[in-house]
Design a binder for these strands. Structure first.
Lengths: 139, 139
DNA sequence: AGTGTAAATGAGAAGAGTTTTCATTTATAT
DNA sequence: ATATAAATGAAAACTCTTCTCATTTACACT
């Protein structure tokens, strides 16, 4: 992921955009909020405005470079797009996010949309629960 | 749905709460935002504060009388709980909301949660698309 | 390399939706 | 009736996000 991707998206290659991309690629967390990205950049000693982070992430979303998850009640988090669609499992205790793909569910959704006469554009499926680690902690 | 339900939930039986319940039961729209409820009450000539509507809906949610849908990007909408779980189809053009239940999907979710070691507490599945009517309008 | 121009930026203001605060009112147990 | 804990309304506060606008920057074209 580099300058070429930005140019293809019709975006000028600027330092803020490269830095946001860099954070998204290098961070251990695959899912970051705009605030997370902003703070990570500040910690790296980069100067950037929060508004710019929001703008850039929104543009990246438009360009198909990242996707935005709108998590219940909370703020949006972003993840780099790697080509494959997937849904999410969220731990309500530690906020860990895991990903999964299930072709059975994908197919059933298409069938349901068709039955209801909907032309499906997208879907969002979140399974909320308590992850293995948090179950242990809770005893 | 009446005073008894409120008492059972440990809530005092007050006019605002009864009025909110009444709106939720009598309205043609099954899915209403806090603002919708507020405006409907004002139109009925009831005096109520928006903060009260939010508070009451949140309490009703806690009491299991209503459930809250957190729709992508937008505001929350509430629906009376009628015992049956269901998921939602949303028209991105006219905001119509339809409901569906699919046991295959329900079961797959349980399996996936188990595979990932999650103790599932709940899930949210929204299928976004364009409804039949809006497809016609768009040609 | 220098320059014009449209695009991008940062800071702060603004906006939407929701929650909180607090003084006043109300429901309900006694 | 009365005490008291809970509920209310209005406004302020809050969170997340977008917008505004003056300044800066990238890049196409000399």
């Amino acid at each position: 992921m580099e300058s070429q991707d930005l140019r293809k998206a019709g975006l000028k290659v600027t330092l803020p955009r490269l830095k946001v991309l860099e954070i998204l690629e290098q961070t251990a967390q695959r899912h970051m909020s705009a605030e997370d990205v902003y703070k990570a950049l500040l910690e790296m000693g980069e100067e950037i405005g929060l508004a710019t982070v929001y703008r850039v992430l929104t543009q990246f979303e438009g360009a198909g470079l990242v996707s935005r998850l709108s998590i219940e009640g909370g703020h949006a988090v972003f993840e780099l797009v790697d080509g494959s669609h997937h849904d999410h499992l969220l731990c309500v205790s530690c906020n860990r996010i895991e990903e999964f793909v299930d072709e059975v569910i994908e197919e059933r959704q298409r069938v349901i949309a068709a039955e209801k006469g909907f032309e499906m554009t997208e879907h969002s499926l979140y399974i909320y629960g308590i992850c293995k680690e948090c179950q242990k902690k809770a005893g």
